[in-house]
Design a protein around this nucleic acid. Structure first.
Lengths: 234, 234
DNA sequence: TAGTGGTCTAGACCACTAA
DNA sequence: TAGTGGTCTAGACCACTAA
């Protein structure tokens, strides 16, 4: 008790989560109705609802109309990753950001790229390869395809100065983004660019974005050796 | 217009997000006050508040008291990963789950493990290595350390039958979980276990959990070749 | 079909912070 | 210190779904 405030929804959430943690409510157990909890804890039902919504979002409980609220029997670890613009990420580490355009051309998409967009046939798109640097050293190698039907304006942009990453983020908001994470062995070309040993294990972050049903861009970001992706908090 | 319902907070959110997408509100722009938006769109202020909360959670806008609501100038890609129990993950793919205990012993933690927990000195913990299988083939190799001060009961569990993963999830809820993702080259030992080529690039998922300030477990899950981690949706 | 969660409203008061 | 977002309340009605 730090004060005489009314209970906030966060107090209610903490109380309920505490009961899950100390096993008053066990995995699979049914919790009382929101209304009963509200009465017990002396707050409005909508305050309990707000707290429960948060616990449900966090994967702690599951709620169903008429079925009630249950402690999740198979808890999942829910990790939230924030992937910023590469420049911002580098600067946040206190390093000097650098950028080099490696390749830019209209090309037919390989099948893998068409597949990321859910297209059945290859299409001509803008293919851009670029290297992001932190303190003069390779940080991320970006292999990107941009849909010219939705982003025709990008052909007028000088990509030797501004990265496609930056331009797209500022000019092409998206409504959907799929992310895919995996590991690859550096081939000779990547190894040279990334100052890595050939065969080194590198983390790849692949992102594909759409506005509505219209593809915008897909990008394969190969990170430097020993790169790690961290989550915020639970 | 599909019906004559009152506007829901999701309608309001979609309307506002639409204005961000079509650049009525541009990156950095200030939006009207909640109250004015409520009046314009014909709903209660709390409905706008609910919609705005969702947009702020999604990283679309930033809100500050007195400062108002602004479209985020540096949008981040926010990815949500659900990491289930390995058995559940394998079964969800329609494969048959299998499990083998490889090693179990009390040992002093290496420095890297002590560091994960924020400990300054090594401590004796339970070290468990196990292999998870999907359709008889290696799926995830799990290298785990369990804090015996918080999880003494685990020494009474027959880990040749039930995986530590499963037992902990069901018996040791946590309040904090750090996740770390990176790539490694398979060493000879891992390569043999994972049926991979030595040097193959493998994705590693490292998780460390606490209850309050008390460490529970840290686990390094080395995934099989070509494993991919996907997000839900944006 | 009855019970439970989901949402909306109007009004009040509070908490933070830009000016 | 005034303006804006954050939250609570009480009551109403709705939407889903287990029984």
């Amino acid at each position: 008790m730090t004060s005489a405030h009314r209970s906030s929804w966060q107090d209610i959430r903490d109380t309920l989560q505490g009961r899950v943690l100390d096993r008053t409510y066990r995995p699979g157990d049914k919790l009382p109705r929101d209304e009963d909890i509200a009465e017990e804890l002396g707050c409005a039902r909508s305050t309990v609802q707000r707290a429960m919504q948060d616990l449900a979002d966090a994967g702690v409980v599951e709620r169903k109309r008429k079925g009630g609220t249950h402690v999740r029997p198979d808890p999942v670890t829910r990790a939230v990753l924030d992937i910023p613009i590469t420049r911002v990420e580098v600067e946040a580490k206190g390093a000097v950001y650098g950028y080099q355009l490696v390749h830019q051309a209209r090309e037919m998409t390989p099948l893998s790229v068409a597949a990321s967009f859910g297209l059945s046939a290859p299409e001509e798109m803008l293919h851009v390869e670029a290297l992001h640097l932190a303190d003069q050293r390779a940080y991320v190698f970006e292999d990107r395809w941009v849909n010219l039907e939705s982003c025709a304006e990008i052909e007028a942009v000088d990509l030797t100065r501004d990265s496609a990453n930056e331009w797209l983020v500022r000019n092409k908001p998206y409504s959907r983004c799929d992310v895919r994470l995996y590991a690859v062995n550096a081939d000779d070309r990547i190894a040279e660019r990334m100052e890595a040993m050939p065969g080194a294990a590198l983390l790849v972050i692949e992102r594909t974005t759409w506005l509505g049903d219209v593809p915008i861009t897909t990008v394969r970001s190969v990170t430097r050796p020993n790169y790690q992706l961290l989550t915020q908090k639970a």
